[in-house]
């Protein structure tokens, strides 16, 4: 694989947690490469370490050992402040429970990441309108999260994830809290983001039906990547 095609390169990553005096190994010797524009599903049973791996890729947590390079930036060497700044420009998050701010409208929720970009108010509004139109929520942009259905909230969350035009989108069980129809819509939307807009997506799911919608799949079991499955 040519270097410029690579968007993600994980090399010998280890991660463990301390619980009292006990050390719990969560990830062991993880190595993975991903091409720009890929749509990867990280699959595995509960406790296999897939969310931990996603958190490390998204720069929410620090590795014990190894390196993670995203679009040429070794994020394991960044300070906490630099990592936060890097996240604001390079990572779009889609959470299982949408994680919208309840006191802000859909429009304001989408605008939130843009506050960190230094754009003017008018520019922010243009970006938000564009992102909201991608997820077809123009008629609901003044609504508060509690006035929206689960599927609609997840679409707003996706608009928030793409509004800064990030390098990668990370989705942690994005359909985990949705009925089948809403889940189908969300997966269709993610597929469109990947195919039409060329977004690189890494999705964690334990649902094989959702996993099959991705274009590639990796399995984690007890903290180890199983490339053979």
């Amino acid at each position: 694989m040519r270097n410029e095609d690579l968007i993600l390169s994980i090399d010998n990553v280890y991660k463990s947690y301390h619980r009292d005096s006990q050390i719990i190994r969560v990830l062991e010797d993880i190595s993975l490469e991903l091409k720009r524009g890929a749509f990867l599903a990280l699959m595995g049973p509960s406790g296999s370490g897939k969310s931990t791996l996603l958190n490390l890729i998204a720069g929410l947590d620090q590795v014990d050992q190894g390196t993670i390079e995203i679009d040429g930036v070794n994020i394991t060497t960044l300070s906490e402040t630099d990592l936060a700044r890097w996240r604001s420009f390079n990572v779009g998050f889609i959470f299982q429970f949408y994680n919208l701010i309840p006191v802000l409208t859909a429009f304001e929720n989408v605008e939130l990441p843009l506050l960190l970009t230094g754009l003017s108010k008018r520019e922010r509004q243009e970006h938000v309108s564009a992102a909201i139109s991608v997820v077809n929520m123009e008629d609901r942009d003044g609504h508060y999260p509690n006035q929206l259905s689960g599927g609609q909230q997840q679409r707003v969350a996706i608009a928030r994830a793409i509004v800064t035009d990030p390098t990668i989108l990370v989705a942690d069980e994005p359909t985990g809290d949705l009925d089948r129809t809403s889940a189908e819509n969300v997966l269709d939307l993610m597929d469109r983001l990947n195919c039409d807009l060329g977004k690189t997506i890494i999705m964690v799911t334990h649902d094989p039906w959702a996993g099959n919608r991705a274009h590639s799949m990796e399995h984690l079991d007890k903290g180890v990547l199983n490339h053979d499955l």
Partner: peptide
Amino acid sequence: TAEIGTLRALGFQR
């Protein structure tokens, strides 16, 4: 707490 986590994940500093 979850809101705080979300804001931090989006890139807001401490």
